[in-house]
């Protein structure tokens, strides 16, 4: 080998070595998923996109098509990098600041909360529930939702500051914030998440029915006592003879009937819906 060629070979080898020392490598990605709702608390079902950004770089984007397992309607991935020079422009490293955008009707929407997160660790799963809209009084309820309650309050409420998340405007036992998350109307006392019927039926089962909200995911949990409750999933069937399974059901705005084992009648049972 000629001296000049030897020089170049050595230089290239050194560059590769340096590059290898500072380049990041792919790591297990972080999964970010959750439920994005509009300002009135209704989960988006279509025509909405959620994206994660690292600076000006878009890391991932999801187009909402409906409710998915876990009561979510979006799922995104952050490609994680081990450190040094990222192996790809969209790869991020532990602790990087990530911003979240929600685009509806071609317009990026303001978010009540959840507009940013810190990347990592790799392999992690992060639930991130989002609500579009403005929240001028910073109480976690969108202005639009609060104004709707004011409009229905018959003059009892006049400003959004008077609409408190922990208050129960319609006196139905659910706070305003709980109604927001349940997709029920906080100004209608008859509109709430509630077991309307619980009866014993054939097949050693109990039948319970309740009014669902569209696109809201429900599951059953139970505990032995309420002094030191330990809630755990409860299997249910959707008919009298079907298998009892640990599952979720997605509401469609109508009454739904679920069946549980009659032996569960000695326990406390909840209908649960995911919320932030």
């Amino acid at each position: 080998m000629k001296p000049m060629a030897q020089y170049f070979t050595a230089a290239i080898a050194m560059m590769i070595a340096i590059s290898t020392a500072h380049a990041g490598s792919p790591q297990p990605c972080e999964v970010v998923y959750g439920l994005v709702r509009d300002a009135y608390g209704f989960p988006y079902a279509a025509d909405v996109e959620i994206a994660l950004h690292h600076g000006a770089v878009e890391c991932d984007r999801h187009r909402v098509t409906g409710i998915m397992p876990g009561g979510s309607n979006f799922r995104l991935q952050l490609e994680m990098d081990s450190g040094g020079t990222p192996y790809a422009p969209y790869a991020v490293q532990l602790g990087d600041a990530i911003t979240v955008s929600v685009t509806a009707g071609g317009t990026v929407q303001p978010l009540v909360s959840g507009g940013s997160l810190s990347a990592g660790p790799s392999g992690a799963t992060l639930r991130l529930d989002l609500v579009t809209g403005r929240d001028a009084d910073g109480d976690g309820l969108s202005d639009a939702w609060e104004e709707q309650l004011i409009a229905q309050s018959g003059g009892r409420l006049t400003t959004i500051e008077e609409v408190l998340p922990d208050a129960d405007f319609d006196n139905d036992g659910l706070t305003n914030l709980e109604e927001f998350h349940a997709g029920t109307f906080a100004f209608l006392a008859t509109d709430l998440l509630q077991v309307d019927q619980l009866t014993a039926v054939a097949g050693n089962r109990l039948k319970l029915s309740f009014l669902t909200s569209s696109q809201i995911s429900y599951r059953l949990v139970a505990t032995e006592n309420l002094q030191a409750p330990s809630w755990h999933p409860l299997a249910f069937a959707v008919d009298t003879t079907g298998p009892l399974q640990y599952q979720e059901m997605v509401g469609d705005g109508s009454y739904q009937t679920l069946y549980i084992d009659q032996d569960e009648s000695t326990r406390f049972i909840r209908i649960a819906t995911q919320q932030p």
């Binding site: 036992g173 709980e178 709430l192 619980l198 949990v221 049972i269 819906t273």
Partner: peptide
């Protein structure tokens, strides 16, 4: 057999919104 049907309640916990019997 013990039933709790007459006292259904909806409560919020950290991650769930619930209807309690």
């Amino acid at each position: 057999m013990k039933y709790h049907s007459d006292s259904l309640r909806v409560k919020r916990s950290v991650v769930v919104l619930t209807a309690l019997l």
